[in-house]
Nucleic acid binder design. Sequence first.
DNA 1: GCACAATCTGAAGCTACTATAGAGTCAAGC
DNA 2: GCTTGACTCTATAGTAGCTTCAGATTGTGC
Lengths: 143, 143
Amino acid sequence: MKIGELAQLAQCTVETVRYYERENLLPAPARTQGNFRLYGPLHVERLRFIRNCRALDMSHDEIRNLLALADRTAEGCGAVNAVFDQHIAHVDERIRELAQLKEQLSALRQRCAGEHAVAACGILQGLAAMETEARHERHTHLG
Amino acid sequence: MKIGELAQLAQCTVETVRYYERENLLPAPARTQGNFRLYGPLHVERLRFIRNCRALDMSHDEIRNLLALADRTAEGCGAVNAVFDQHIAHVDERIRELAQLKEQLSALRQRCAGEHAVAACGILQGLAAMETEARHERHTHLG
DNA sequence: GCACAATCTGAAGCTACTATAGAGTCAAGC
DNA sequence: GCTTGACTCTATAGTAGCTTCAGATTGTGC
């Protein structure tokens, strides 16, 4: 099949498919005489795998890692579990961060109930007065 | 004061300060004879405001919006509240997304308890078998 | 033979910075 | 007066994961 059909089967765009090839997530396929990419069922499987990982917000590095581990059929899946556990930890941490953020935002929001002049707006005052703190390092690739 | 001092007062790097100037978040300051940027207390206040907004994960667009609203002192703060509420909605949605993600990940994780061959790994099988779904539109700028 | 869809490559754009190179400025010490 | 070192300047490229675009080719239906 050609790239358009593959993309449709994996629910992504053809640009994304070509991008994954450049990124070495998808192997370069055979070409037709006219230089069109020609894919088979294995490509569909692999691309679906990648898209599913992305739907779980894994990074390309994590996915490349998983794919390499899956290809080394001789070995056990302990390493797979490790990658997975680490990713779950990423998600967990981001959830915690956002929950804390939401508390701060809600607290600020309560400082302005009505419609007064901006000079008196509790939100703006709060934003100006907050204790500026250094940006902490990210322990997750999740935004 | 010069850029280094300003950056320290706002807990960010000098590169970030110059970047904000290019992005029209911070107004271009006066310069010394030697072409060094020269800042006053108003710049400190504004930069702190920006950094606090960023600590709350607001986008530059949201911040530009808030700054413009704060500058129009004649008007009320209804619009400020609107920007703020929308941002809280962003955070809320992202938390919901991640919570759902975590459920999926946990379910997958339970499919592989021990250390077997990768061919039998429930996680990898699950990743291959998941129903590929189209990436839904983002309603939040939060990653 | 011609229109039109699909494909090709390469490059630029997005967000919010960070990092680097190479040049210039300034204050202190000898 | 001269050097050293800290600071600053501009301009450019890199990050992640794509998306968008321009301009050229290929393939298909009539």
